[in-house]
Amino acid sequence: MLYQVTDWDDAYANGPHIPGAEAYPPRWQAEAAAFRAATRHEALGEGHLFRPDGEAAGLMVFIHGGYWMKFSPADFSHLAAGAVARGWAVAMPAYRLAPDASISQITRQVAQGVTEAAGRISGPIALTGHSAGGHLAARMICDDGTLPDEVATRVTACVPISGLGDLRPLLRTAINDTLHLDPQEAAAESPALLSPRQKIPVTAWVGGMERPEFIRQSRLLADIWAGLGAPTDLIVDPGRHHFDVVEGLCDPDSALIRQLLA
């Protein structure tokens, strides 16, 4: 079946295609605030580091989305619940939003946050993120020195959720009025156009009810990185859309948490 995008703005617009989309951000903020009030945590720059009771089994990193230009770690604190319940610490690094920062600058800021958290928590590191954060999670394990070797060698899993592996289509959207990507930076910051570090299991996770471009992007990353020698998988989560596909991170027994922390 022929697939062709004729409206690039609509192809990357999630809210208009999700019933009740406007209710999700305030719900996230309320659940995040309640989780912070009940969970031991400390500052990680402008972000947060959540700790379990007792010694941490490892470090999970969650990187928030919002097309690199919206939200903050404080909007998603509750997504640490599943990993904390399993005895893991959870880092949620902050980054300066576009247009005040370019995507290449955001990549470096997130890498600094991951490195700082890794210095506080020993053991394995599991990387994940949602949407733009999924892009950044994959970007952390590109074999270009983004993460220091001593941090990257501890990474046991990378699960980009609804991530963007190829940024070049965004050049055709109004989103780029804020991102200010040019073709060179779009290519240089696209994980699908870079080589992954070897031996790190990568699972591209995406909702089955998401926009076709997000499913294509997830499949693209898994397929290309498999061809470059990385152990990869693609999970299309049935019945999930772009805003609820992350909810498995709240549940310590979910398939998403098991894939990330196994």
Rank of each mutant, 00 (worst) to 15 (best):
T153A: 13
H135V: 06
G134V: 06
F35D: 03
S102T: 13
R27G: 14
I141P: 04
G123L: 05
R108V: 15
E46I: 05
A85L: 01
V110T: 09
G65R: 06
S122W: 01
L97V: 07
A137I: 11
E46K: 14
A83K: 02
A91G: 04
P124H: 06
T39A: 07
L147D: 00
I125V: 15
E22Y: 05
S104E: 15
H48T: 14
A32F: 04
H135L: 08
I103A: 02
R96L: 13
T146K: 00
P26Q: 06
V61S: 05
T39V: 06
H78T: 10
A101S: 14
A98H: 07
C142S: 13
L97D: 06
F71M: 12
R120D: 04
G15R: 15
P148V: 02
W28K: 07
L97C: 09
R36V: 00
F50W: 09
P16S: 03
A81H: 05
A117I: 11
A57M: 10
K70P: 00
G129I: 05
P26R: 08
A81T: 10
H78A: 12
I18H: 11
G47K: 10
G119Y: 02
R51Y: 13
K70G: 03
A85Y: 01
H48E: 15
A85D: 11
S77H: 11
G65Y: 05
E55S: 15
V151L: 02
A33S: 12
N14M: 12
S122D: 15
V110L: 09
Q29C: 00
A56T: 09
Y95W: 05
E150R: 08
K70D: 10
P16W: 02
G123Q: 03
C142E: 11
A23W: 03
P26F: 04
L127V: 12
D75Y: 09
H130V: 03
T153V: 14
A21L: 03
W68Q: 04
T128L: 02
R96Q: 12
D144Y: 04
A126Y: 14
A81C: 08
I103P: 03
I103Q: 01
L127G: 10
Q109G: 13
L136Q: 10
A91V: 02
R96A: 11
L97G: 08
A138K: 09
P93A: 05
T146A: 03
G133D: 04
R40E: 12
F62I: 04
E42T: 13
L127F: 11
I63W: 06
R139G: 03
A33W: 01
A37I: 00
S131H: 09
T115D: 01
L147W: 00
A118E: 01
G15F: 13
I63V: 14
H78K: 10
L97N: 07
P148S: 07
H41E: 05
H41G: 08
A74Y: 02
V110N: 07
H17P: 00
V110Q: 08
H78Q: 14
F76I: 06
A117P: 12
F62W: 13
W28E: 10
V110Y: 07
A38C: 01
G113R: 10
H64K: 09
P99S: 08
L59N: 08
A56G: 10
H41D: 01
